[in-house]
Write a protein that binds this DNA or RNA. Sequence first.
DNA 1: TATCCGTGGGA
DNA 2: TTCCCAAGGAT
Length: 369
Amino acid sequence: MIVAGDSFPVGPAGGPDLPAPRPADLLAWYDAHRRQLPWRSAPGTVADPYHVWLSEIMLQQTTVVTVGPYFQRFLARWPTVADLAAADLDAVLKEWAGLGYYARARNLHACAQAVVARHGGRFPADESALLDLPGIGAYTAAAIAAIAFDLPATAMDGNVERVLSRIYAVTDPLPGSKPTLKALASALVPAKRPGDYTQALFDLGATLCSPRNPCCVLCPWRDACRGRRDGIADLLPRKAEKAAKPTRRGVAFWLTNARGQVLLRRRPESGLLGGMMEVPSSAWEPGADLAYTRALAWAPAAVDWQRLPGIVRHTFTHFHLELTVVRGHLVDDGAAVDGVWCAPADFHDQALPTVMRKVVTWARSGGKD
DNA sequence: TATCCGTGGGA
DNA sequence: TTCCCAAGGAT
């Protein structure tokens, strides 16, 4: 048993000694307040590993509310992992469009194929075997092992890190405190109902032990919480400072042909928005605006480009993007261009990420809000 | 270890 | 407006 104040960097023992948090108390709270989510099975039953895996991939850095409709659509279209493995990658990317972190979609498809090829279409009930699959890291392997197979794995996600850092008043900032939190979390995983216990931690972090304004008075672990005792629960976990986001700028080329179609292009398989479709654009460079003559060198065709007023803004994880949109028309649509012609009415069926949907909206409006 | 990789909602 | 954050993984 690991004890707060022993060998871990924890807050000051500024009060009465507290009892250890008891998994049974958390499980009792879970049984009374369990959230019904689309990927969860009925109480007392173990969920379908395919459903668990699909939901866990979608839920990486993504909210429950956002994932819900995507999860339902994927399951309706591909009811089994074998169905998903047999799908075209582009169909998967189209269904994933708008959800972000598009490498997840490529790895999802690769993982489905690996499950079929290596494991006969059944997810392995083994944490290390799960870890070997594409798109499954330490967290997801443990989460699947616990939730789908009821194994005593330690799934460390943002919720668990927050709950544990408060319970034990871990004041060292993330990510440096991750090993400490992992050790504390592992020591708590119960032999009985580890899957429900894991989901209970998620629910606790999502509802009561939330990032802001935690509701400590309703918490099943309130009497064991060092962070609450020390009055610092809402300040934890501490996090290392993040770098400021730079701004990058570029030009997007809205090219139409005589049939009213628009030129789209597939982005490279790796990197930002990998494998997704785009309105052809220049490089996105930091600093000052790309000189217009330089931007024209990126144009997909030599036509008379007209700059639209205003600008399309979008923020990614690590930079702001400002895109100038220019429009051009290709009279000779027999000319060779790099990309595919697509009617605007068919855009909904394209693997267009959100930033490109913004460009589409802006170009079609002529640069008006 | 640090960086790259999306998006939408809330404070 | 700006910042933060959400069931992280790959390199």
